[in-house]
Design a binder for these strands. Structure first.
Lengths: 171, 171
DNA sequence: CTAGTGAGTTCCAAGTTGGAACTCAATGGT
DNA sequence: ACCATTGAGTTCCAACTTGGAACTCACTAG
């Protein structure tokens, strides 16, 4: 059957995963941050099949991550550029870079670093709590029902307290 | 043909995308943070096919995101739990939550919020630069060759300066 | 002796992937 | 005028993946 879609699940993670849940999409976004914008350039740099690239770009445009902008008429040509939403998604890529630094490559052997485009200063992404500036401690962060959670409080309680309350039952 | 693998590309984004580049994987990680750990519980909460779940869990164990731990012998039973690496990956989920807040749901209508497990305080994830604490401005962040970039400086320069230097050519 | 639970495996039709070849339109030599 | 090239795709097809349903196996509870 067709792969499941997640774009209507009431969950930011599900919907983001629906957008980025194909490895080519982060790759294309990465290329965009370098300034790549033309079909053949994507195709050659990523060694992606032209048909695959074609469907991916179309989907990303439809989803609002990229926009397709003509830059010349007579041989009709266009470029693909990041939208604000697409730029927003690159922060997820930044989190991936950090994850890679921490868990996928040896200390100091990362192939890529992030830099400030203007000053060239190295940037080390880290996910913190906006209010306190404290780094999030993954083991201590739990999703909970938010204002847009469908179905009311009882459902929320059921959903977020799986049958096994075997670990922490207080409160 | 089989989907391309990215787990040997010299790039943190590519390798992370290889791990998370299937929407089920973020979903399973999300469930783990709620405390879900048993096969059937994943299966029912996500409505994922048992065969798919089976292969995903096995792959995630192999990749070191989860560990499979027996918790009883006689009917042999086990649970799946996040490893340190798995917990690290949840920071990417936190970035997805933020992206969803900013671009996928109306202000104040997000289905999910993150909370401190102990205090219950709401946490708003944001990606900042570790050194300055300044939020990353996506439009101003560019990937560049890092210490582990293969192939030396000339290759790096070629790679990170696509043919079109049409936008910013200084420095 | 029957029903139920946990944890999978097997089966299969329908859908997706990716490499190669093909199209089309316009421009650049020669 | 003719041929090659570039940009941007489409078309084709065999191999592989997905997911729903049914099946297995090992115990436990009634």
């Amino acid at each position: 059957m067709r792969p499941s879609r997640f774009d209507h699940w009431p969950c930011q993670i599900a919907r983001s995963a629906d957008l980025l849940g194909d490895p080519w999409v982060p790759m294309i976004l990465r290329e965009c941050t370098y300034g790549v914008s033309r079909f053949d350039e994507f195709q050659q740099r990523l060694s992606i099949g032209r048909n695959i690239l074609s469907t991916r770009l179309a989907r990303m445009v439809e989803q609002g991550l990229l926009e397709k902008e003509p830059y010349q008429d007579h041989p009709p040509r266009h470029r693909y550029r990041l939208t604000a939403k697409g730029h927003g998604a690159t922060l997820i890529l930044a989190a991936m870079v950090r994850f890679g630094d921490d868990f996928l490559f040896e200390q100091g052997r990362s192939p890529i670093v992030l830099r400030d485009r203007e000053t060239g200063r190295r940037l080390r992404p880290i996910v913190v709590d906006e209010a306190t500036g404290e780094p999030l401690d993954p083991a201590n962060v739990v999703p909970a029902a938010g204002p847009g959670f469908p179905g009311g409080a009882r459902l929320a309680r059921e959903w977020f307290q799986p049958t096994q309350a075997d670990e922490r039952s207080s409160s």
